[in-house]
Design a protein around this nucleic acid. Structure first.
Lengths: 338, 338
DNA sequence: TGTTAGCACTCATGCATCGAGAGTGCTAAA
DNA sequence: TTTAGCACTCTCGATGCATGAGTGCTAACA
């Protein structure tokens, strides 16, 4: 499609622009890179690239700027095996030391490490709990007629919730309820349990057992989780980037909206092996048309356990960002397997 | 100190500036407010106010702008009993409905309500858990040699932590440990428990009881909490304010730093009854010299349970903000008492 | 003695102009 | 196919100028 020389020029332009944030001109290219071509030739090539839709001019007589399509071509071509700095990995390791046994703390630390090293926005979203397997349910009465429900999942973290029982339950009753729940639901994923709960609705009515009714009720209430955590770090550095001085507000709004971000990560992350990249207008939301997203998933026990990634301007150092996200995802996966 | 007329002029200037964000001139005052004075007289008064340090001019021949001292005088004078809009309270009530039995969810909702109605930054910080009373400790073994520790406090929320036990413990052993812990620690505040733990160090060694050692160890590990939650809402609206287009970055940095914010809230909140106000340079951190903070505490069972407040530009609608924060704090206090 | 009218003065702001510089596209020559 | 040359376009910063808002001061007034 593009001959080698044209491609090289495109890459040179993309990389210059990533570094300098200034439209790059033909003269600049000839000075900086040794293509042994005159500015005029470069200009011809640039004109071609513009026809292809890979470059654009902010105005006549400015230099060229890569379009989203240009970035896309670049990203699809670059090697995905570039290395990350040593201190990046070291940061991860020391964070892991500091937060051992505290999964959420570690994940938040991972987001922070990512943002600090990339200077972009660091994201981590543990997967929606619907897909995780329930290990055990524990109940205990609490302050009179409340019940504390603790759900242990295989993931490690515990979900908890306080429920109003409506009446005082004896420890024995409580134990019978929790035995029933564990027998029914342990080993299933949260989503499966939700399904079972719907089916049980009828069965439970048939049985007319107050105890069971209560148990299922508790379970149903306990499973109305907040839909999932997400850690976002590095906002202040991110905001300081010169790229979006104008419409910060919309961008900040989109980023603050955790539901939106979760949905975005879930959509993107699932598809391919290795980091996915969404560039500018490829993004589903218009607020993010000047932003790019690099995201990967991490696994636990062979199953996807969450997403990690960065958000930056379309003028992002993709090669570095991809390497970092990939490294981070691998690191977390490895940490979780221990 | 200030005669009544001078005071009225000051208030007029403060309020105009709060509304318009433009330096206010003598002519404007005479047109807008009916003091029955000529611009010249107003100018004389303004000159006096400037001498007092209540007003400043951005440059010769701009209007006057209130200084932090000016705002301070204004805030100290205004009635603290202005009303809030009805829909503000309604928002609270509906949030409470939606998040019943989920304290953290409710508090986050409160921060959001506050930010949405004030258009400033809404903050809620549940008090550092050190001052809350431990109700009960529950232990259960988890995935082999791990132990899940769940701490029930009087506050309602449960703190949980997963600990590596190092060896497999039988249910019976576990029960003995948890009985011991409950006997020792229930009814004390977390801070007291920390103290007790230090004392126990020696006693425990004397006893040479492996079980107790293990128990105390578990407790100590479990009490290394993350230092406290804080909910910050409304960043995108806040950032859109015209006041700080220049140094957004520092401000965003300060706000993102949760430790810093927690410390700030803790410092301010504790002192007086009703909302405290910190204006611009009164603020301990230089990054916040263009921001004002209105913060109050909410209580549970007579004890301070957390802080709630807003952060806005020094040019803040103090009267409204104070009323809102006060209302919010009262509402939460009331909700917690049920 | 306090208030006001008048006036000169100061600045910020917006607008138009201008020159410099950067970069382009096109053409013709190598 | 590449390159040199040239005319052309457009941004950007500096400059000058008029305008308007607002002030401080002085002198007159009630």
């Amino acid at each position: 499609m593009l001959n080698e020389r044209t491609e090289k020029v495109l890459f040179a332009i993309v990389e210059s622009f990533i570094n300098t944030n200034e439209p790059v001109g033909s003269r600049f290219i000839t000075k900086t890179y040794s293509f042994n071509l005159s500015p005029a030739t470069i200009r011809n090539i640039m004109a071609d690239l513009e026809e292809f839709g890979f470059l654009a001019q902010p105005h006549t007589s400015a230099g060229r700027v890569p379009t989203d399509r240009g970035y896309r071509f670049y990203v699809d071509c670059i090697s995905r095996h570039s290395d990350v700095e040593d201190d990046f990995l070291e940061s991860f390791i020391s964070r892991l030391e500091a937060t051992r046994e505290d999964l959420n703390g570690f994940l938040e630390g991972a987001a922070r490490t990512l943002s600090e090293h990339s200077r972009y926005l660091g994201l981590v979203a543990p997967m929606k709990s619907g897909r995780t397997t329930l290990n055990r349910i524990e109940l205990f009465s609490f302050r009179g007629d409340y019940i504390a429900v603790v759900l242990l999942t295989d993931e490690g973290p515990i979900k908890h919730k306080i429920i109003k029982a409506g009446q005082r339950l004896t420890p024995k009753t409580l134990r019978r309820i929790s035995d029933y729940l564990n027998q029914e639901f342990s080993g299933y994923t949260i989503d499966e349990i939700r399904l079972k709960l719907i089916k049980d609705m009828s069965r439970e009515k048939a049985l007319c057992d107050i105890l069971i009714t209560k148990a299922v009720e508790i379970c149903r209430e306990a499973l109305t989780f907040p839909s999932g955590d997400i850690y976002v770090c590095g906002f202040s550095d991110f905001i300081g980037l010169p790229d979006f001085s104008s419409h910060i507000r919309e961008i900040a709004g989109a980023i603050e909206d955790k539901h939106f971000m979760l949905k975005l990560l879930e959509q993107v992350g699932a598809e391919v092996e290795g980091p996915s990249v969404l560039i500018g207008s490829e993004n589903p939301a218009k607020e993010m048309k000047d932003l790019s997203l690099v995201v990967s998933t991490y696994k636990q026990g062979g199953k996807t356990a969450g997403s990690i990634g960065v958000i930056g301007p379309t003028r992002m150092d993709y090669s570095r960002a991809i390497a970092m996200v990939q490294t981070a995802a691998r690191f977390i996966t490895e940490a979780l397997s221990r």
